[in-house]
Design a protein around this nucleic acid. Structure first.
Lengths: 134, 134
DNA sequence: CGGAATCCAGTAGGATACTG
DNA sequence: CAGTATCCTACTGGATTCCG
């Protein structure tokens, strides 16, 4: 079986030179936007339970209806979230994270950990930089 | 010794519910911008060798002088990159990735791998979505 | 309830010209 | 060489209103 890619992902930093850079084709941009990670993170916590549109709106702090709709549509389009529509009156719509979405969040765990561990260093560096220069 | 945080980062997906979401405090946004990852990635490949401004400009495809300067300044401010200035004539400036920068790229390896493995699925999902709806 | 449509302000980033 | 300064455009995202 072929796992040459993961083989090259070793502990050895120098081996990273064999990797091409991250393809900045929209996914990376998506990860950096304001709401994507917060929404899919919330859906991931829910696990296999689905969340209604209104529930997400309540629980993702500060998001507007417009941005929630936009972000969910993009997530659905990318296959990271599944949308279940029930044409009742009033309508009911439920959202659920997909396996693909779960795997993406899994890949983000290391980044999450890095931020939690290194944000203080970054902030200290900013303080020093801002006091010296300017 | 205290490693409770990494303890909770297990293989078990359900445990992720105990994590607070990624703090979207500028770093995440930074990762999603157009040039940050490409630049620091290039510096990381160089390892402990430094790269001149002009070398980065040549090798980071399509970047403008302005964006290279801006992005390098932010990376320096965050402590991810070190700037070495030699006041000669003409001036010479060399950039070098820091250990903090290396550790951040290390945390990004899983994301890089995920994209390389799952981008086809995302693109297929987009094709289906765009043909069905609209 | 779950949007869609419209308007608007702020910002990211490109192109270009100038400089110590 | 390694920037800085300026202008300009496109896009992101907030606020608000309307709708089935």
């Amino acid at each position: 079986m072929n796992n040459s890619v993961s083989d090259r992902l070793s502990e050895n930093h120098a081996d990273m030179s064999s990797f091409k850079p991250l393809p900045l084709n929209g996914i990376c941009t998506r990860l950096g936007d304001k709401w994507t990670v917060l929404i899919i993170w919330r859906l991931n916590i829910a696990g296999n339970r689905r969340l209604r549109f209104s529930a997400l709106k309540r629980e993702v702090e500060g998001i507007t209806q417009r941005m929630l709709t936009l972000t969910l549509r993009r997530l659905e389009r990318d296959g990271l979230v599944k949308r279940h529509y029930f044409p009742e009156i009033p309508p009911r719509v439920e959202y659920e994270i997909t396996n693909l979405g779960k795997s993406m969040l899994h890949a983000l765990e290391a980044v999450n950990l890095w931020i939690r561990e290194n944000l203080p260093h970054v902030e200290e560096s900013r303080r020093v930089y801002d006091s010296n220069e300017r």
